[in-house]
Structures are given as structure tokens and as C-alpha cells.
Design a protein around this nucleic acid. Structure first.
Length: 485
RNA sequence: GGCCCGUUGGUCUAGCGGUGAGGACGCCGCCCUCUCAAGGCGGAAAUCACGGGUUCGAAUCCCGUACGGGCUACCA
């Protein structure tokens, strides 16, 4: 079995494209087939090399490897459509010789006018076959006169219904007479999408075309091309779209829409793959966490759902948190380090120097973070020279009865410690309520606010230990002084 | 306009003629607890879009309607 993923480099790898890639990949791996990566860059206006590079790197980041394509030689290259013009020309020649296509001299403007008219009149708005039966002399004369023409595929007269069995949707029927003679080659000779993909899918011996269902309506057209070319028609499988919360195709308008966006936000590739795999496919009635191997072992097109799925960022967050918590402290530290560096909290060298310290910090963060970018605000207090105390926290905690005395007592208890480990700190702090009679909650919260500036923070004892004795005492002292008397 | 696809709690889904319509996210409550989380337990939440059939029996099969989406380009 041979499948392909054929993104067009007109943008970054979209979340929907990523899911299509994952399904193709899983299908290929499941059946021991090959995944071909082909870059459909026939749109010169919008295709860029930068996008191509970004797409490849996103796929790699997701852990999707391909058997043939850019950077991986196979027998069917090249894998960029812009480098395959000779193939399309040859295919077009075959169609010309077979009389399966004809030149069309109609100008796009004239066609647009007719199309509009036909549409408002109600009914069929396809090409009206003006140039369908031009005789050779006419064609020669127009060409000699310098008139340019496109090539259109002639839908065979008497062609019955176009029927195919979609691997996820079942039997699909399209009436051939509702199909118009569409353009296969533009007047500049370049192939259109519906022609180039078919030629390539045929030449590359693709057996299963798994793609978004925005191509469902194109399928009968493409089948006509396969037939005209005398090539085997592959099995099609159309995946429904991924929507934003408003029921519209997911896009940047909804916020993050590309794989890169999600990477930068601190999602783990394994979480994104898991989430996407289950957005439109299910293993059974209860599996929500599925790793790569199980996905490959169980993926099937039959269990792909037909209806569009709304992308639920909250569920992705939850899932990402699950994966984050499965990481070892070392792995977590490695993954979060880039975010600390990006935020300017640490330099790359410091990351290396403070490995042990980061390893202690990691587990504290892992259980309260859903995205890696959330670590930045949580650890900011550890990097700042001093801390600005949240106004609300000051009023609700520090200015309350007993807070000042608690800070005094804490300062003294901690100051006496030689060992500034979390357990030693905990013992010291727990002794304060006993010796002073101040409620434990007030003691802990006062210290927390003094040291972190907020009523919400990482666990107190560990935070103090991570901060270090000197800086902890300084902050407690500073908070205490600010209270006066 | 024409052609095509889809419709189970707010969201992702299981279901493929007989179920108390199951699970997950989210939400609410309780427990745990130095805050926040994480974790554990429990709960609310679906007249299976609507209307007709078929059948002893329909979320499941058929038809229609509504709503949503896609295609209808010398875009992909």
C-alpha cells in the first residue's frame, strides 16, 4: 500500500493538515506500506520555500517520518510538483493524442460572465462547451493569430454515473452530466491541481488517497482524469474538516492554527498527535490516551468519523498536562528550558550550570502546568532580584492580624537554619505556629506573599529552598519592613 | 443557483434493530492539602436536528425538511 501526504506550501502546516498527515502515516505504518511526501507547490503566487521548510520541520517534530519525498530519495521523484513539469507535459500529450482534451480559447473574463448568468438563471453553471468541437483549421488559425488557449478535459459522452467507494464514507455517486469540461492545463501550459495530483498519484502508484473532504467534490473529476490516462484509480478516503468553535474551518482567526503555533505554546508533540488522532477517529468507547505504537497498531479508516470536529483547546490542554506529568524531571527540565531562555530568565549557559537546580524545580511545575509556556510566570519570582507584592495579596494577607509577627518569627526560625532543604524549612516553619500561637495558615500565607509576591505559588518550602536562604530572608525582611511599626 | 457531505450532552466520541444511550474534556460538590495544582470520589448535563415511514421494536434502515459545511477558478 502506498499513501501520500501532499501539502501545498502556501502556509505553515495547518492543524487539519497535520491530522491528515498523521492518518496517512498511521495507515501506512499499520499496513507496512509507504508514505510519500509530495510538495504541491504549483501555486507560484503563494508557495514559498520557507513554508516548505517549516512544513518538513513540523512533520519531523510531530514524529511523522516519510519513506519517499524531500530529503528521502525514492523511485518516484522528484517530489516537488514544480520539478515535475516534464511529467505533466507528457501526460497532457497523451491526452491530446487520445483526443481526451481540447483547446479552449475562451477568456477567463468571458467565462466568468457566462457563469454568473447561468447561476442567476438557476441550474448548471459549468463550462458551456463553446470550444468543444472546434475544427482543426479554426484551431490553427486562432493559434496563428496568437490567441492563447487552455486545455480542457472532455467528459466522455454517455459516461454514466461516476461511482466510487470511499473508505470512510462508503459508496459515492456523482452524475457525469453534472460534470463540466474542466481545465486541465492553463494557457501557460502549467497543470491545474486536479490534473497534477492525478498524474502524480498515478505515477507514484498511490493506492489510497487519504485527504480532507474539501476534495470530495473534486474526486469525480479526478477519476475522469485517471480514466483518460488509463491509470488505476486509487481508493479514496475523505476526512471531515476540523472546525473552530464557531463551526467555521479552523484558521488563524481562531488563534493558533498551525503546528508551529502549538509547539511555541508549549505543547508536546506526543500530546498533539494523540489529540489529533482522536479528533475524528476512535479506537473504542473509552480510549482517550493512546500512544504512537497503539495508534499504529490499531488505526483503521473504518473508524474515522464522518462529521466535522470542533477543535477543543481545553481538552488538548488537559491531555498535554497528562503527558507533561509522565515526563521524568530531566525530560521536563529539558523541555521547559527553551521557554525560560526565550523569556530571558536564563541564558543557555545558565541552563547547563543550573541543571541540578532545574531538576528540583521540574516536578513542582510538572504537576501544575498544562502548557510549557505557563512555567514562565510561575518561576519568575525565582529569577527576579526582588519581588513586587500583589496589592490584593498585601491587603488580604500581609495587613491582616498576626502577619507581621509571623514574618518576624519566620525570619528568625529560618535564619537559624544551616540546612536550607525543604524538609528543614518545613520543620522550621511548622514550629512558628506552635511558638507564637499564630494560625498556621496565616504564617504560611504571609511568608508566601512576602517571598513570591502572590497568594498563589509553587509549594512554599520548596520555593524557599530553591530561592536560597539569603534571598528568602531578604524578602521576608523587606515585606516586614513595609508593614511598619 | 446546481452538485455533494454531515447532524448522539457545551465539546470530542461509543453505539452499527431490543442498552438504565457508555467514555473523555469542561462544569459543580466533597476528600486530600502550606496556596495553586495534581490525585481520589460523587454529581448535573442528550425527548440521539425535525417530520414521516419500515418494523413487534429505531439513535441505529428508508424518504423528506431544517440547519451547517464543501465543491462549483486557467487556487490548492
Amino acid at each position: 500500500m502506498r499513501v501520500r501526504f501532499a501539502p501545498s506550501p502556501t502556509g505553515r502546516l495547518h492543524i487539519g493538515g497535520a491530522r491528515t498527515a498523521i492518518y496517512n502515516w498511521a495507515f501506512a505504518r499499520r499496513h507496512g506500506g509507504a508514505l510519500v511526501l509530495r510538495i504541491d507547490d504549483t501555486d507560484p503566487e503563494r508557495s514559498t520555500e520557507e513554508n516548505t521548510r517549516a512544513i518538513l520541520s513540523s512533520l519531523k517534530w510531530l514524529g511523522i517520518d516519510w519513506d519517499e519525498g524531500p530529503e528521502v530519495d525514492g523511485g518516484c521523484g522528484p517530489y516537488f510538483q514544480t520539478q515535475r513539469t516534464a511529467t505533466y507535459t507528457a501526460a497532457l500529450t497523451r491526452l491530446q493524442e487520445a483526443g481526451a482534451v481540447y483547446p479552449c480559447f475562451c477568456s477567463p473574463e468571458a467565462l466568468a460572465v457566462k457563469r454568473e448568468a447561468a447561476r442567476t438563471a438557476g441550474g448548471f453553471s459549468g463550462y458551456d462547451r463553446t470550444c468543444c468541437d472546434l475544427d482543426a483549421p479554426t484551431i490553427a488559425a486562432r493559434t496563428a493569430a496568437g490567441k492563447s488557449h487552455a486545455w480542457r478535459l472532455r467528459v466522455p459522452d454517455g459516461r454514466g454515473d461516476i461511482v466510487f467507494t470511499d473508505a470512510v464514507r462508503g459508496e459515492s455517486v456523482f452524475r457525469a452530466d453534472a460534470m463540466d469540461d474542466f481545465v486541465v492545463a492553463r494557457s501557460d501550459g502549467s497543470p491545474t491541481y486536479n490534473f497534477a495530483t492525478v498524474v502524480d498519484d498515478g505515477e507514484m502508484e498511490i493506492t489510497h488517497v487519504i485527504r480532507g473532504d474539501d476534495h470530495l467534490s473534486n474526486t469525480p473529476r479526478q477519476i475522469l482524469v485517471f480514466e483518460a490516462l488509463g491509470m488505476a484509480v486509487p481508493t479514496f478516503a475523505h476526512l471531515s474538516m476540523i472546525w473552530g468553535p464557531d463551526g467555521k474551518r479552523l484558521s488563524k482567526r481562531h488563534g493558533a492554527a498551525s503546528v508551529e503555533d502549538y509547539r511555541d505554546l508549549g505543547y508536546l508533540p506526543e500530546a498533539l498527535v494523540n489529540y489529533l488522532a482522536l479528533l475524528g477517529w476512535s479506537l473504542d468507547d473509552k480510549t482517550t490516551m493512546i500512544d504512537r505504537d497503539s495508534l499504529v497498531a490499531n488505526f483503521s479508516l473504518e473508524r474515522v468519523s464522518l462529521n466535522p470536529a470542533v477543535f477543543d483547546a481545553e481538552k488538548l490542554d488537559w491531555m498535554n498536562g497528562m503527558y507533561l506529568r509522565e515526563l521524568s524531571p530531566g525530560e521536563f527540565a529539558d523541555r521547559m528550558a527553551p521557554h525560560l531562555v526565550d523569556a530571558g530568565l536564563l541564558s543557555a549557559e545558565e541552563v547547563a550550570e543550573k541543571q541540578a537546580w532545574l531538576l528540583e524545580l521540574a516536578p513542582l511545575l510538572a504537576e501544575r502546568v498544562k502548557r510549557l509556556d505557563e512555567v514562565v510566570p510561575m518561576v519568575a519570582f525565582l529569577f527576579a532580584d526582588s519581588v513586587t507584592i500583589d496589592e490584593d495579596a498585601r491587603v488580604k494577607v500581609l495587613e491582616k492580624e498576626g502577619a507581621a509577627a509571623a514574618l518576624d518569627a519566620t525570619h528568625e526560625a529560618l535564619g537559624a537554619l544551616a540546612d536550607f532543604s525543604p524538609t528543614a524549612i518545613e520543620a522550621a516553619l511548622r514550629s512558628v505556629p506552635e511558638s507564637t500561637g499564630i494560625k498556621a495558615k496565616i504564617v504560611f500565607q504571609s511568608v508566601r506573599v512576602a517571598v513570591t509576591g502572590s497568594t498563589v505559588s509553587l509549594p512554599l518550602f520548596e520555593s524557599l529552598s530553591l530561592l536560597g536562604k539569603d534571598r528568602s530572608l531578604e524578602r521576608i525582611q523587606a515585606a516586614r519592613s513595609s508593614l511598619g511599626d
